[in-house]
Amino acid sequence: MFYPNSPQTSPQLTQIPYGQQYAMMQRQIQQPYHPFATTEPQARLYPYHYQGPIQQEQGGFITQQSTAASPQYVQMRVTPVDQSIMSGYPNQTANGSSSSSFNYNIHPQQQQQQQQQQQQLRHHAMPVGSVPLQDDRYRKQLIVNYLAPDVTSTDLHELFSRFGELDGARIIYDKQTNMSKGYGFVYFCHAEDAKEAVERMSGYEFHGKWLKVGYSTNPLNIVPSNSSPYVHAGSRGAAG
């Protein structure tokens, strides 16, 4: 039997160049792979992502010199942007860049009308829970959420009447099932009393439920100042 490094198959040491006398086997001759043993700084910083320098080929596509990437890492192929796409944008300079302001050559009167329309939209648009300043009635009506099913309009009136005089209180019921929808409205005579009720009743436990109280901004629920107070009856038909 002959071994790869046996004296019968191995040459004389004098015939082997210096430095390879003890590297006779194939696994010894093959050098191990060192990912950080390279002179390129990109490979030292990113050993798993770097795959060699990027070269520009004919046709405008950018390719990489090395083989496919590892399945664990996804390499994105980048193509140059066609400058003709950006030619339609206004205020574009000769080098292809555009300024931040756009001039669509709008007539001054049209621009003024658009600004007025935007101001009107901001004036009428009102986020949930906010209180408008032009109508004091919005500051007097509250919406009470997360009410228990057994709470009546009379219970709601008695709960909030300790903060001040009320114009009314009612629970909203479903017309088909005649069941409470879980929320109601309270109408105060003074805005200061309503503000105190919002601050003190939010998070209050009532009939096993934690109440959420806020201003009601729905104009359909506003009680006119010259109208008669609501009837605080315990029956659902009268309260709904």
Rank of each mutant, 00 (worst) to 15 (best):
Q111L: 11
G88E: 11
L220G: 02
Y33W: 15
Q20E: 02
R27N: 15
S161D: 11
V213L: 03
S101L: 15
Y204K: 05
L13R: 06
F160E: 09
S97R: 09
Q109L: 09
I171M: 08
S161E: 01
M201W: 11
Y33E: 10
G60V: 14
Q21F: 09
V74F: 15
M179W: 11
P47C: 11
S97N: 05
H49T: 11
V213R: 07
P41C: 15
E199N: 08
W210D: 01
G59Y: 14
Q115T: 03
I29K: 14
E57Y: 10
A37Y: 00
F163Q: 01
Q15V: 04
R27M: 15
A238G: 12
T38R: 12
T63K: 11
V131N: 04
A68G: 12
V74L: 04
P53G: 12
Q111F: 15
G168M: 13
A233C: 04
A69V: 14
R162F: 12
I172S: 00
H34N: 10
G184K: 00
D150N: 08
Y215Q: 08
T9Q: 01
V78N: 00
T152E: 10
N178A: 02
P149D: 14
K209M: 03
Q51T: 06
A197D: 15
Q72S: 08
K140E: 09
N178G: 03
R44C: 09
A148F: 00
Q134M: 00
Q65T: 02
Q58S: 09
S228T: 04
G129S: 11
T217F: 02
Q92M: 08
Q65Y: 13
W210M: 11
V131I: 13
F188M: 03
P127N: 10
S180F: 08
H232P: 12
L211W: 03
Q111C: 01
A37M: 07
P32G: 11
P219C: 07
Q134T: 14
Y187V: 00
V74K: 11
N226Q: 00
V144Q: 04
L133E: 00
P108T: 11
R236T: 02
P71K: 11
T152F: 08
I85A: 09
L133D: 02
Q176D: 15
Y73T: 03
T93R: 08
T67L: 08
S202K: 11
A43I: 12
I171S: 03
Q72K: 02
P224I: 01
I222H: 02
A94N: 01
G237T: 06
V78A: 04
N221R: 10
A43C: 08
I16L: 04
Y138H: 05
V231P: 08
P108W: 15
G240L: 07
G184E: 06
P11A: 14
S10P: 05
Q114T: 03
S180E: 08
Q120M: 15
I222G: 00
V151N: 00
T38F: 08
N218F: 01
Y187I: 01
E40V: 11
L211H: 08
Y89I: 04
F2I: 12
G164S: 09
A23G: 08
G182V: 05
Q109A: 02
N5L: 09
L121V: 05
D135C: 01
S227R: 07
R27I: 15
Q113W: 10
Y89T: 03
H123A: 11
G164R: 08
S100D: 01
S66D: 05
V223W: 13
K181W: 02
I85K: 14
F36K: 09
V78P: 07
Q64R: 04
P149C: 00
T14W: 00
Q8W: 00
Q20L: 01
R162E: 06
F36R: 11
M126H: 03
G184P: 15
C189G: 07
M25D: 00
F206Q: 07
Q56A: 15
Q20G: 04
Y73H: 13
D82N: 12
Q8K: 00
R122S: 10
S153M: 01
R137Y: 01
P47F: 13
M76R: 09
S216K: 07
P80N: 08
I29G: 15
S87M: 02
Y104V: 06
R77D: 03
T93K: 10
L13T: 06
Q109Y: 11
F36W: 04
Q21C: 00
M126F: 01
K140M: 01
R77W: 15
E196W: 00
Q31E: 15
D135S: 11
I85T: 04
D136R: 03
T63H: 03
P90G: 12
E205W: 10
Y73P: 09
G240P: 03
Y48C: 09
N5Y: 11
T152Y: 03
E192A: 01
M126L: 03
N103H: 12
I222D: 03
Y50V: 10
P35V: 08
S235V: 08
D150C: 01
G52W: 09
G164H: 09
Q20F: 14
Q55D: 11
S84C: 08
T9F: 12
R122D: 03
G60Q: 08
Y89L: 10
F36V: 02
M25L: 12
R137P: 12
Y204R: 09
Q65C: 07
L121H: 07
S10D: 08
H34V: 14
H123G: 07
G168L: 04
T14M: 13
Q21S: 08
V186P: 03
M24S: 01
F2H: 13
P17A: 05
A197F: 14
Q141Y: 14
D150Q: 13
N178I: 08
V231Q: 00
Y18T: 03
N145S: 05
I29H: 09
P71N: 12
P32A: 14
H207Q: 00
A68F: 01
A68V: 04
K181A: 02
Q42I: 10
S235E: 03
V144C: 02
N103T: 12
S153N: 04
R139A: 14
Q119R: 03
T39Q: 00
L159T: 07
A37G: 01
E165L: 09
Q118L: 14
G203M: 13
Y173F: 09
S228F: 12
N145K: 09
S10I: 10
S153C: 02
G88F: 15
P7G: 08
Q118T: 13
M126V: 06
P71D: 08
G234M: 11
G129A: 08
G240D: 06
D155I: 08
M179H: 01
Y230F: 03
Y138F: 13
E158C: 15
I62N: 03
S153I: 14
S84D: 12
E158R: 04
Q51R: 03
L211Q: 00
L147M: 00
S161F: 00
P11D: 06
S84P: 13
H124D: 07
A37I: 14
Q64T: 09
T152G: 09
P47I: 15
Q117T: 12
Y48E: 12
Y187Q: 05
V128C: 02
Y46R: 06
I171H: 02
Q114W: 05
Y187H: 00
M179S: 05
G19M: 10
Q116R: 07
Q55F: 05
S87A: 03
H207F: 09
A68W: 08
L220V: 08
S235W: 00
P47G: 10
I222T: 10
Q119D: 00
V186S: 07
F36E: 07
F163P: 15
I106W: 09
P53W: 15
S227H: 14
N103I: 09
Y204T: 08
L45T: 12
S66G: 08
Y3Q: 02
Y22T: 04
A69L: 09
A197W: 15
P11C: 06
P127V: 11
Q21E: 01
V151W: 10
V144G: 10
R27T: 09
D150P: 07
L166W: 14
Q56H: 02
D136M: 01
F36Q: 12
Y138W: 00
N145I: 06
D167Q: 07
V81A: 11
Y50N: 02
Q115R: 06
P35Q: 08
Q26H: 13
S153Y: 12
